[in-house]
Design a protein around this nucleic acid. Sequence first.
DNA 1: GTGAAAGCGCTAACAA
DNA 2: TTGTTAGCGCTTTCAC
Lengths: 367, 367
Amino acid sequence: MADASTHGHGPARRATIIDVAQRAGVSSATVSRVLNGNYPVAGATRDRVHAAVDELGYVVNAHARALAGTSNRTVGIIVHDVVDPFFAHIARGVERAASEAGRLCMVCCTHGDPQRELAFVDLLHEQRADAVVLVGGAHQDRSYAREVARRARGLHAGGARLVLCGRPSVGQGVPTLSVEYDNEGGAFALTDHLLTQGHERILYLGGPPRLSTTHDRLAGHRRALALRGVPTAPELVHTGAFSPAFGHRRLAELLSSGLEFSAVFAANDMVAIGALQALEEAGLRVPDDVSLVGYDDVPAAATLRPRLTTVRVPLEEMGRQAVRIAVPDAEAEAWRPPAEGGVRLGTHIVVRDSVAGRAGRAGRSRR
Amino acid sequence: MADASTHGHGPARRATIIDVAQRAGVSSATVSRVLNGNYPVAGATRDRVHAAVDELGYVVNAHARALAGTSNRTVGIIVHDVVDPFFAHIARGVERAASEAGRLCMVCCTHGDPQRELAFVDLLHEQRADAVVLVGGAHQDRSYAREVARRARGLHAGGARLVLCGRPSVGQGVPTLSVEYDNEGGAFALTDHLLTQGHERILYLGGPPRLSTTHDRLAGHRRALALRGVPTAPELVHTGAFSPAFGHRRLAELLSSGLEFSAVFAANDMVAIGALQALEEAGLRVPDDVSLVGYDDVPAAATLRPRLTTVRVPLEEMGRQAVRIAVPDAEAEAWRPPAEGGVRLGTHIVVRDSVAGRAGRAGRSRR
DNA sequence: GTGAAAGCGCTAACAA
DNA sequence: TTGTTAGCGCTTTCAC
């Protein structure tokens, strides 16, 4: 029952390539060759080796293999939280592309802690991942950026790549690859949409204050406001977490404080979910009484009632691109890193049912 | 710019422990001891080593370390899809517990393909993961179970563990660990709840036919029916995917076919999301015209309108337990595998707003 | 407190 | 087509 070998006999030791070689009556080099299938070996020999492998329950040791030269074919991905759909979709893209490139994917969760993030980059470097993908907004802090840059250089020196996915570069000349999306542009378009509908008092809700994502979305929002000559009102900006809980709690507070606004720009769809709940509980109808928009276009956005107007971000594609630009394809011999060191994907607003015209209390109502 | 070393000088080669040793004027053994901090080393020596490490940008090679003896401290998890909340929450539990136990987490996605699943178990074994967690329902097939059993033995022989999380054992004497939840019981309770509300024609919708999860939920459903003497009607059972798309499409077809039923038991919350949409589109109100229940209690269940009555499954806790029973704690010396070889967690129904009494067309309506 | 040296299991020249 | 052998980078006795 607790026997170490399949047959319950022999020493409690894992079979090695040498064991297989002896059993098959060949050398370890031959075993290696049949296992890797990258070198001609006689059919009969190959069969004997395979038989020995099966009999011994031999499983190649990826560490020994990696040590001996060939990369161990893994990529690492660092996210805040695998459950958050924003990260989950990017992670799915990374996993799929990695898998297609014949690589295993190591996932780390920081829960938003920059120190953990750095520690994970180190850990992944130790594991000799071919690429490390850093996902989502970056903590805006110079010394932090310096630490990231240092690790990017270390990874690069070892032939690996640090990929910045959805966050800005950490500086000129730092050897990173990047996958960006038009964050500022999406926020601009969304705010412009709201303005076009007659909203001028727009509450901006959520997003960690010192996160690059928040910075960019807010920048787009303000640019749209400025372009229409709408004054920015400090009391209308309330940053915070990227969660339903924050959206719900803060909006409920604001509502009972008597703050006036006709639309809510939730920093992402999760915040919008909480905001919608707060609005409902206050007896306000969306979009008749208050309009609401989100960001990211995660599946939940289309499930909400009213269906949420939001900005589409090509999350899964970002994940795919991150590994595509960092590691050679499985079969493709002719592969070189992208000239530009990165790709930039577009975003676009998707209009659904959560926005109505300002003067339109009697406006669109569902059913 | 493309220099391999931090300073742009010297050979394009990664620093090794030998380089550090030379630079610090000590032996590699001493460097190893300093780095692992598991052996007394003079303060001054330690400082010199750390300085050399920094100057060289040295990063220990986890493969060499793993080869030389100490486990490489990783756990693997195999799921269908990281985006599906069912798997995402379990994955989060696994990642957290692994992280707390000082381990890295390798995530693999099978997209429901049993062959891929087996291949990933092999890959993870090759990586010498301390534990491999197989998540979610199992494909019900004898030869498949045999393959899993074979791998469980192989892993076990190498000192690693295969953990079955949310799926039945693959046979007596097969060295696996398991984390189960009361799947059948949850389905029983849910159906009983529906029956109590007067529903007798209950449509069972979704869940891959040859998956153990489907088997168990259907079993609980049927047991509840039988207990009340309600005949099972084959035309009321429609298995399929675990997705909103399936729930939507199939229910729409069924609705237009004229099939009669007063409640829908969606095999999971995702199916319920699609079902709700189909119901809405058909002009049917939930729960006034038709009652609807889901399973799993993922966050979306509470976001739907009406809020979905469903069965709470302790997903994240299942993930945590999976690694807890399989690997020693970070600091805990005194650790031994659970005597029983597994844990079993409870489920319970959470009643929200998607079920109304059969006779109650005029019954509860929101607001 | 520190060093020398023997592996860990595999791959990849280089020979035969 | 197959065998021999020298490492890959680290940990860990065993001496000193």
